[in-house]
Design a protein around this nucleic acid. Structure first.
Lengths: 139, 139
DNA sequence: TGCGGTACTCACCTTCCGGTAAGTGCCAAG
DNA sequence: CTTGGCACTTACCGGAAGGTGAGTACCGCA
């Protein structure tokens, strides 16, 4: 049905937005799609080091259901699927910018390590201060 | 130990901001504190129907550690603790407004249930953010 | 002939988030 | 003298989020 069932009654707008954004990789997918316009599954996977295929697909499917990303399948000999942002995805990204800025300032404030992925190719640079080392997991 | 060693290396600003906001009640706490300025523990608990004391405290502690809320303890006969937003909490709230607006529009779009229960009593400053008083259950 | 790449699906497991319920020390009210 | 409010703390538990590793159908390249 049009109305997605798993998204429950919301308390407020933030609640509704968070529901769509929460997921370990969703904001990153949003960003990746935003900066590249259109990406294939494999490109996305390589662009988000550490993501498992299962999670990538799961998030992508949810985001498609939520109307954030568009999925274009090309029935070719080697399968080809292209993902891109819908207008809602684009506007969500815009709404996230303020939050991103806040977070960036927070990173500066607390001097946390930053892991920069992406850029265009595989630039695994890191950090602002001293060491980086992509230590496993947080939280 | 009580100290959750989150705040790991961040991938980007959004990541850092999300780290601070994720938690079932955090954004609501933020709004509650935003609209009332200062609230006692019990007031907060009553203001967020459905929250358990454990979760409220846990979130409050994390937010205090993250520099979002200020905790003022009054060593009195009946214990009294007041919570309020720090300047960082205030700015985070501001950064969340765009997201809140987006979410509000999404709610309108998909016609999801919103849990509006008239906040008859109490001061409801409510800008773009509306209502509280809810029964849980989403997702 | 076998490996690698495409885009997945499926089953199983672990970790963590959040919930429930009880207890704490102190005091006022009934 | 029991109850209730204050602001917590502690122990235990279930479910969901996320991770791992295998398998699938097809093809190009070495």
């Amino acid at each position: 049905m049009a109305t997605v069932d798993r998204r429950g009654p919301y308390i407020c707008g933030i609640d509704a937005a968070m529901d769509v954004v929460t997921g370990k990789w969703k904001s990153l997918i949003l960003w990746e799609l935003h900066s590249h316009g259109t990406r294939r599954f494999g490109e996305l996977r390589r662009g988000l080091p550490g993501v498992s295929e299962k999670m990538l697909i799961q998030h992508l499917r949810e985001m498609e259901q939520d109307g954030l990303v568009h999925r274009e399948v090309y029935r070719e000999v080697p399968p080809k699927v292209e993902y891109s942002l819908t207008e809602h995805g684009v506007s969500l990204n815009a709404a996230l910018e303020a939050l991103g800025d806040w977070g960036a300032e927070r990173i500066r404030r607390i001097g946390a390590d930053t892991v920069h992925i992406d850029a265009s190719q595989d630039t695994a640079i890191a950090g602002s201060h001293s060491g980086n080392r992509v230590s496993p997991s947080r939280r």
